[in-house]
Design a binder for these strands. Structure first.
Lengths: 350, 350
DNA sequence: CCCCGTGGCTAAAAGGTTTTCGGAAACGTA
DNA sequence: TACGTTTCCGAAAACCTTTTAGCCACGGGG
């Protein structure tokens, strides 16, 4: 008789392959206990004798056993997964929020399912259904601006937290940067340095972020019994606009000793143009930016003093709140998160 | 007898709550068929009478039925989920890859579980286990540079594709930008414009990206029977270094008519300094950057001609390949992806 | 009339885990 | 011995879906 391997041998080989993952029942039989006991031993429950527990743990290690999260989730109803629905393709705001969320969840404990709707409402609906069918435990929705955005929380079976851009439904939970407060921080800093004639160059008036920052500036000035130098200059969030504004402003307001810019891009353009026009920053002119976008703010000449909305902390807070909402109660409303001032070389005492 | 609500009433209320999700058995009973028939009707299988199918579909719609992806995955062994393991916190490379992957997967079809290891090998292991226990169908690993990185694919039960940074194991599948080719593209462009004295300013010599780009430059020059103007200047990936290099170079090489910079940051610093030193770009001096980092490249004066590594396409290709690997065969090795040249105003005919 | 094929449906198993409940053994007390 | 208590373990249900195998009735061919 020839020595052909039997079919059963093939099957055995197949079972030995790496992609045949060990289950808890494999662990149980290797340890010589029932499935239930193996489960209890591995999950640290009490009613297992210590020697038995050791045997099970050794068996699990030998088989490189990894519990199947699907089966676990199916039973418990908890997937330890949250969805992050963002709209800013660039990841400008979504990424810090993601990092903060990962921090809050404790690395590896919770997983984040990331979806980018790219500003398309239909795609957003699509992603929403996909996330729901995957039974995420909760949802973080990241807006592309601080303007209120349509709520997605109607009759959703999981809690939702909005980050950066608030929901338009006040009964939802939203975390947004306090742009008014951030601007106040910046202006108080300028006032403390002895600056008296402060102008404001910012982005499109259509953005709540721009309006809020302008409001904060006026509020801080009023508080000190002062007024803005000239009108607020609305434009775009670009370096180009910053340069253009600098050329106009430095001509029309020769007495100017400080400028508060609505973004680091604008500020970067502004300092560049000011420099070329022979104004010394910060000696003649102090400049403050907004966003603390490192690649820009730290690389200008001089590096920019700027308001940091601390998006990572915002993300962490949003994630923590989502936790609270998942297994308890949430506190609805729009929560304003304080910004912090990062002082670099573009501001100094007069 | 007082009218207290009965326990059963409470339960009924509870069942009515939004978080009691409809299952296929709810759909089946509403439609008056068995679970099996409901499943077949909803999944478009053949042996269901048409009128029955309509009834089931109507019932599913009424209950807003969403099949439980966990149960489905448990049975089929396919979760329609892939893990994206990245190391670049900033998302500089990870995000385009993510977008490309989402495109390739077809929105909503496949989900992406995003993990950021932040350059920490232990955290990476942690995330890897979490992803595996969630039974992802495959993995995309995004490196933080184009230097080879340790393989994670040893005995992994799912296929892995490396993007941006290749694996150090040649039997893995990697997709990396062709930096040599990108540099050649840039230099040929300069030569075609009639430039003859071309210098190179780039990042740290420790980066393969920097070395490859330098190599591409030399290769393209040699091909045209020419040589580099001066030595390659190695530095950092910063605007500051670009400015510094410009000051040195424009003094030491007055004949210079073009500079190829190893990154847009360097190029941005370079054009700024060149401008201040009175050189007209592109008339006196053509400048080419690398990366097509829009916020920088499009905002300099003049906007930068630059090499775009087309990371989104790279991500899409990697994802498509992961697909192939999941349900078929993979072609191992390091695949170099062509870059493309984006021509803006910093280069022009002499 | 009997047999067979087929269309349309259902029962049941499978997938992996956790939890509840009950059983068995061992031990102490009356 | 009879009985209660404690300790440890196992059987089975539950989570939800898909698939396989089988059932039943009906109609046509022999």
């Amino acid at each position: 008789m020839l020595e052909f391997p039997l079919a059963s041998d093939y099957e055995k080989d197949f079972e030995d392959m790496a992609d045949r993952r060990a289950t808890i029942s494999d662990v149980a039989s290797l340890a010589g206990v029932s499935i239930a006991t193996a489960s209890k031993a591995l999950n640290g429950r009490q009613d297992v004798r210590d020697s038995t527990r050791q045997r099970v743990i050794a068996a699990a290690a030998e088989l490189a056993f990894q519990p199947n999260a699907l089966a676990r989730g199916l039973l418990s109803g908890q997937t330890r997964t949250v969805g992050l629905l963002t709209s800013d393709s660039a990841g400008r705001f979504g990424i810090p929020v993601l990092l903060g969320a990962e921090d809050a969840f404790g690395a590896g404990e919770m997983a984040v399912l990331l979806c980018d709707a790219r500003g398309d409402a239909i795609r957003e609906q699509h992603h929403l259904r996909a996330l729901l069918s995957r039974r995420v435990d909760g949802l973080i929705v990241v807006g592309e601006s601080t303007d209120p955005r349509p709520s997605v929380s109607r009759d959703l079976p999981v809690p939702v937290v909005y980050a950066y851009g608030p929901s338009d439904d006040p009964s939802d939970v939203s975390f947004v940067p306090d742009d008014v407060g951030g601007a106040i921080l910046a202006v108080r800093h300028l006032l403390a340095l002895g600056r008296r004639r402060i102008a404001h160059v910012t982005g499109p008036v259509g953005y709540k972020a721009a309006r809020d920052r302008a409001e904060g500036l006026d509020e801080a000035l009023a508080e000190a019994g002062m007024a803005r130098a000239g009108e607020t200059l609305w434009g775009t969030w670009s370096q180009r606009w910053g340069r253009h504004a600098a050329e106009m402003l430095l001509r029309s307001e020769p007495e100017l000793d400080a400028v508060f810019c609505g973004s680091d891009q604008i500020a970067a353009g502004f300092v560049e143009a000011a420099r070329e026009l022979g104004r010394r920053v910060p000696d003649d002119l102090a400049v403050v930016g907004y966003d603390n976008w490192e690649v820009l703010a730290a690389e200008t000449r001089p590096p920019l003093t700027t308001v940091d909305p601390d998006l990572e902390r915002l993300g962490r807070t949003a994630a923590q709140h989502l936790f609270a909402a998942i297994d308890g109660k949430a506190t609805p409303g729009v929560h304003k998160m304080a910004c912090r001032l990062v002082i670099r070389d573009s501001t100094a005492r007069m």
